Amino acid sequence: MPLLSPWSVLFLSAALLWPPATRRWAPLALAVAYAWAGTQGALDPAALAAPALLALAALLVQPPAPTALRLAGHMLFIAVAAALFLHLMPGFHNPLVIPRAPLSPDAVPFSMYLNLDKPLVAFWIILALPPVMTGLDAGRTLRATLACGAAAVLVCLTLALALGMVGWAPKWPDNGWLWLVNNALLVTLAEEALFRGYIQERLGRLWRARRWGADAALLCAAALFGLAHYAGGWQWMLLAGLAGAAYGLAYRHGGLAAAVLAHLALNTAHFGLYTYPMRAAF
């Protein structure tokens, strides 16, 4: 991928979401990235339906609106978010940047696309209904990241080894840097924004008066995260659910930043040290 491309601007727009001082510029950078991608055939006019529906949902969910309209806005967002995550919205032609090939001798072939659709979910959540972005201080965010990230790596990869899903396979391919940047700025951000910053946060607020509310919100988000990995079978759903619980704890104590970094820690350990995405014989 060239250093200057629509996706480098897309990466920049995602990075701008984090500091409050630069967040207002993120939509502008996103618009530039999408306009540029359109000139390269990665988007066609039908793709405008997604941001238009998300803009409508953002208007509907704001507190001044009546309860019925806010509920309709949330339902609209959930429907569009699911379609974007599943790549069902029309007009998006995500480019293949890592051709399909095994990363280690015993691995199933792996390929990677740079998604233009899925990141829209993170932008909507952070801009329309901002979640908790960090802990009360940098130290708390760091501690939550390290503790929950280490727990996710230890538990999930040990269990994956025990189940025969992965094997020890240290590596770092030439395109690993692109995988890492994409995972850090787009993949983990979109997934954690949806499952922790939206689902866990919204359910936690809904059940805040209940003694069990925060724990139930965390477990519901983790269970849904596990179910989202249904294509990999019960083993991947189990691992994703356990990982989701760790990310949920990271979010509770360190905000979205801790959840994203804990998620990135597990993904990077899996990618760099073990069979990725899984053993062909599994």
Rank of each mutant, 00 (worst) to 15 (best):
A147G: 00
V132E: 03
L219V: 15
P27N: 14
F282S: 08
L71P: 00
V97N: 06
W25E: 05
A223K: 05
G254W: 06
M89Q: 10
A50E: 04
A250N: 03
G41I: 10
V80E: 01
L146A: 15
G91T: 03
W212M: 09
A246N: 03
L136D: 14
W179E: 04
D174Y: 09
L264Y: 13
W212Q: 11
H270K: 06
L163F: 13
L249Y: 09
Y113F: 15
N94T: 01
S111C: 04
L60E: 08
E192D: 07
F77S: 03
L159N: 01
V260G: 00
A58E: 04
I98W: 14
P20Y: 13
G135T: 05
A259T: 09
T39Q: 13
M1V: 12
P277C: 11
G244C: 14
W179V: 12
A37C: 09
P170G: 10
A128Y: 10
R210E: 09
L10F: 09
R24E: 14
G226D: 06
P2W: 10
G248I: 05
Y276N: 03
A150C: 13
R252G: 02
P2I: 04
L238D: 07
S111F: 11
W18F: 15
A58P: 01
E201V: 00
L30Y: 07
G91A: 10
A79V: 15
G244D: 08
L53I: 12
A228P: 00
C156V: 14
A37P: 05
P51G: 09
A65P: 00
A209H: 13
P64I: 08
P90W: 13
A221M: 06
Q235I: 10
W207R: 03
G149T: 04
A147D: 03
N94L: 11
M112D: 03
T67Y: 08
L17R: 01
A245H: 01
F110P: 01
G176V: 14
L238M: 11
L127H: 07
G41P: 00
D117I: 01
A160Y: 01
V187I: 15
Y198H: 11
I125A: 07
S104K: 08
P102F: 14
N175P: 05
L114H: 04
R70V: 12
W36P: 00
M75A: 15
G167F: 07
F11G: 04
G204A: 11
D137M: 10
Y198D: 02
F11C: 07
M75G: 12
Y276Q: 04
G91H: 04
P51Q: 11
D137W: 13
N267V: 07
A223D: 05
L56T: 08
L239A: 07
S104P: 02
A33F: 09
G254E: 05
H229Q: 13
N183S: 06
Y276F: 15
L266C: 06
A280K: 06
P131V: 15
R140G: 07
I199C: 05
Q40L: 15
D106M: 08
F195M: 13
G38W: 03
P131T: 14
L114A: 09
G255P: 03
W212K: 03
A50F: 02
M112P: 02
A144W: 01
G248F: 05
D215M: 10
G176F: 11
A281Q: 11
P45G: 13
L86E: 02
